[in-house]
């Protein structure tokens, strides 16, 4: 944990989407010492942030480049696209990479079939369904099935 804190100190991170995932990441990265800006369309989404969240909240549509300029995306070390919409995540991630030249871009992708498109564009992705499926399969293969001897 100390290592993570050291690495995050002074980093400037923009997170798009303040749902359960976005808010969790924002809370944690902010606790680790990063300077975090979280962007969401709806102000009430920020209720999910912990009272100890030490970053900035920005209400607006991340698809609009004006909003991203307000978030000073050109200065970001990392962008995380974590909205509920794959297409929005793709657009935001691509803009961050190509227009704002953000050195590292991570996007959540819901539909595993979209994964290839992201990869082709050079965007790192995390697909919660694939991750969960792999964990399930691991649990299944490592665990005992009925009829198997120990």
């Amino acid at each position: 944990m100390q290592d993570k804190k050291g690495r995050m100190n002074g980093k400037y991170i923009v997170i798009v989407g303040c749902g359960r995932l976005g808010s969790y990441l924002a809370n944690t990265l902010s606790q680790w010492g990063a300077s975090v800006v979280i962007v969401d369309l709806h102000e009430e989404s920020f209720k999910l942030l912990s009272p100890h969240f030490g970053g900035f909240r920005l209400t607006g549509d991340a698809v609009e480049s004006g909003v991203m300029r307000q978030a000073k995306l050109d200065r970001a070390d990392l962008l995380v696209a974590a909205t509920h919409d794959d297409n929005v995540n793709l657009l935001v991630a691509q803009t961050a990479l190509k227009v704002f030249k953000v050195p590292r871009v991570l996007a959540r992708v819901y539909d595993p079939r979209n994964d290839d498109i992201y990869q082709e564009l050079g965007i790192e992705t995390i697909c919660p369904i694939t991750v969960a499926a792999e964990l399930f399969l691991q649990a299944v293969t490592e665990g005992r099935l009925p009829g198997e001897e120990r």
């Binding site: 002074g10 400037y12 300077s35 800006v37 970053g55 900035f56 920005l58 978030a71 000073k72 200065r75 970001a76």
Partner: peptide
């Protein structure tokens, strides 16, 4: 202007 980066 908010938000600001530590560097700026």
């Amino acid at each position: 202007q908010k938000p600001f980066t530590p560097k700026e």
